[in-house]
Design a protein around this nucleic acid. Sequence first.
RNA 1: GCUGCUGUAGCUCAGCUGGUAGAGCACCUCAUUGGUAAUGAGGAGGUCUCGGGUUCAAGUCCCGACAGCAGCUCCA
Length: 746
Amino acid sequence: MLTLKLPDGSVRQVAEGTRPRDVAAAIGKRLAQAAVAAKVNDKVVDLDSELPAGNGETSFQILTDKDKEALAVLRHSCAHIMARAVMRLFPGVQLAFGPALENGFYYDIDAPTPIREDDFPRIEEEMRKIVAEAEPFERFERSVDEARELVRDLGQGYKVEHIDDDLKRYPSLSFYRQGEFIDLCRGPHIPHAGKVGAIKLLSIAGAYWKNDSSRRQLQRLYGTAFFNQKDLDAYLNQLEEAKKRDHRVLGKQLKLFTISPDMVGSGLILWMPKGAIVRGILEAFIKDELLKRGYQPVYTPHIGRLTMYETSGHYPYYKKSQFARTPANPFQPDVHGHRDFLRQFIAVRNQLPEHQARVEEAALEQDQKFTHEVVPEIEEVDPRFPGVEYRKGDLQKKHDILSAWLDVQEPETYLIKPMNCPHHIQIYKAEPHSYRDLPVRLAEFGTVYRYEKTGELSGMTRVRGFTQDDAHLFVTAEQIEAEIGSNIDLVLFVLSSLGLNDYRVRVGLRDPNSDKYVGKPENWQKAEQTLIEVVKSRGMNYSAEEGEAAFYGPKIDFVVRDCIGREWQLGTVQLDYNLPERFNLEYIGKDNAAHRPVMIHRAPFGSMERFMGILIEHFAGAFPLWLAPEQARIMPVSERFRDYGEKVENELKANGFRVHGDYRPEKIGYKIREAQLEKIPYMLVVGDKEQSAGTVSVRDRVDGDLGAMQLVELIQRLGEEVNERRIRQVSTASAGLSDRDAQFGD
RNA sequence: GCUGCUGUAGCUCAGCUGGUAGAGCACCUCAUUGGUAAUGAGGAGGUCUCGGGUUCAAGUCCCGACAGCAGCUCCA
């Protein structure tokens, strides 16, 4: 016998091997009808699964359409239904993965003729047919060998590969059959298709097989499903609402920023006057905090020598995503590509004699181009280049000549800076340091440029030029924990000052299988351990994720979601043992010997651009008073009160408020509507009554008409609201849509 | 970078199967001088993203580039 503990606390004895379906039926007919799946010991299972043998109490719950977990099961089943419909309509389709998501589901498929959005209606129609037939989902198991044979017979090559790559180790594999459709799948599923109330296909996109960009690209069909039409409509409506707070839409509407792809370039933000005010206030806000916390502001240039970035490791690790190098002499021919090739040539020739012939052939071909195109160019701009000798030399000699010349040229090449740290390191290095000086905290709003791929760009949240509220701390080993800790506090302070409470903390660790990181494994281990200890000791919720580290060290990131559910890293605190080593940083310790400091890289906002983008969405463009570009607008009821309006305007300006007067000959309703749409916190109406009483009528953006107020009273009210950085508009950071983490995998 | 979709006035969009561009808002002018989310009338504004091609004729069809959107990959 098995003892089940139900959600209401009651206990029920059943025989081993009983199915949740039977338990539901025993409890009540209506529950049995409503049942979608069951939760046994916190694991969601099919209604038809056999309850496991167990000693002691087994927690047991029937899931119905009221439960969130049931919705995930439903959606996973809908992925199957969609795949079945697609296979009926598009013969020869191969299936890959089809999991449920937080807000829907997808299935990756490989179709001989690509599926297009125009095909959605007929796929949906076919799906509805399947739903109407309400056939059951039937589970069965096979050994690995039998399973492989089965998927092969079904013509599902990706499934075969998946079994061979990842599933071989299991004793048996489960399948689900629904009518003619059989799919390798872990489950669980709804009892039959009739449970589906509403479905909609949403979009189609490319996705790589097993998330590997070197593998075949498949088509990913996104859809969503609900138990009823009403929920689907509500969800679609929610999507529409979320789009309205998109910072790209609001940024345009409220004239906060613009982008000029054709003239300035895509991914480069132009801050318009209103956006610039908000940014300026944010910068002043954080700068003030930094000074209180012992930071020293510095300024550094936008470019630096290539040599520096080679030392730091930024180049060549990330050269693909950097803006082009700039030769100090603009006429210098671009021979670096050839340099790389020749160096490679030498390296390969020394190591792999069997490749010699092929490599030499390629080098000779390259030589033709060099002799006839590049060399004349070089000669023209650089009389020091021994062109004659080059021409008559053999390949080895030519290479020597070119290398020697390149070595002279190289230091004259500059890079537009992708990071601020190497510059700050040079400031640290400009003077000797005693242990007494540490921590040295150098801060700068440093603008960096990174050539992100076109498909990555997005409004203000992913750009090619951005300003980090950056700082680098040079600390002793003993100071690490305290400094990391106080930086976490700073990030938390910044986020809470702005009411950004909907974030998660990610500890980014190195991926041990990747070679993109610099530095010794011991240092990495030490750094990773320290970070985890600090977040643990603060009792913070965090997730440690491999492969999320910076190339020089692990980091703690504060991640938020935008209005359509995408995650973005804002604040970050990074620990780095590597750059100090690469740049030979030192301080003199108590023992009068040189020691190596440790670096902390940190940015509470992350970047001004991304932070602003998220902030726009967070407030839906309605900034709190302390940040609002225009805090109040004076609107006379008619032109006759312009003089009084200007008096009010000047008085408020004299008190440091950002106000404007709307003196156009328009009706008051018109002016109010406009100000409301511009999300101006306060509207100050002045007319006959106000003029004679020396008051203003205050209309609040949130609460509406507040009635008349003495000017001094208003000034005090606004002053308090600004000083307390009060946030008076309830708003959630994001609608929390479309988390694309898989919950169930096939 | 990849897959799919899109690109018409400052903004949001219409323009059916090819026949020399249209609305609303914004803008400008005039009238109106008003009391808490749109006063009325008039005017100006477009090389239909760019470059090729098909055609008697291209905003419309085809090809390419660029850009935007969604997703994937990437993200120092």
